[in-house]
């Protein structure tokens, strides 16, 4: 069987389905507030590199992590490429390969321990009645852990050990 190309891998993934619609008009690039600020990030180039199967350049580089998730590009894309979602799909692949920026470990730890990506401190929780706020309800960490183990997401922390 023919090996699946990088662009096909992306297209098969949740979020990556629309990548082949792209005809490189550049509307995304000029819509992008980050691309305006730095040449390190250009959504059109990311999509082009993916379509040309330049897997290593994409996964080893830092550009895919610079998307600020504003969805401006996706909103204006004339070919309805779901650009932000495509970038998430590529990030998902990078993470599976162990190429993870450090902040995502923080997100992961917070989610799996507390059920939230930002921890609510004991101080903040204690202060609630004083402020006139009802007590915080417990988070559904147990259910969340079940979901994480079903999807294999809980193996995420193992990625850190892999050589980059």
């Amino acid at each position: 069987m023919r090996a699946e190309s990088f662009s096909e891998t992306i297209r098969e993934r949740l979020g990556g389905e629309t990548i082949t619609f792209c005809y490189q008009c550049g509307t995304c690039a000029s819509s992008c507030p980050v691309a305006k600020r730095t040449t390190d990030f250009n959504p059109r180039e990311i999509i082009k590199l993916c379509l040309l199967d330049e897997k290593d350049e994409i996964l080893d580089g830092k550009s895919i992590w610079l998307c600020c998730s504003c969805y401006n590009c996706q909103e204006r894309c004339p070919q309805k490429v779901e650009i932000a979602d495509v970038i998430y799909a590529v990030r998902n692949i990078a993470i599976e390969k162990g190429k993870v920026p450090n902040i995502y470990f923080e997100f992961f730890n917070a989610i799996s321990n507390d059920g939230r990506i930002v921890k609510v401190s004991q101080f903040a929780e204690n202060k609630r009645p004083q402020l006139g706020l009802p007590p915080l309800q417990p988070t559904g960490v147990d259910a969340l852990k079940k979901i994480l183990s079903t999807t294999g997401f809980d193996k995420f922390h193992l990625k850190k050990e892999e050589p980059q």
Binding site: Q24, G26, A29, S30
Partner: peptide
């Protein structure tokens, strides 16, 4: 070579600015 994302107008001069990429 680029499809502009938007046209804006300087409120003072009335000049138009076409925001695009040259791919």
């Amino acid at each position: 070579k680029g499809r502009p994302t938007e046209i804006s107008r300087d409120p003072k001069t009335g000049k138009l600015v076409v925001d695009t990429e040259d791919a």
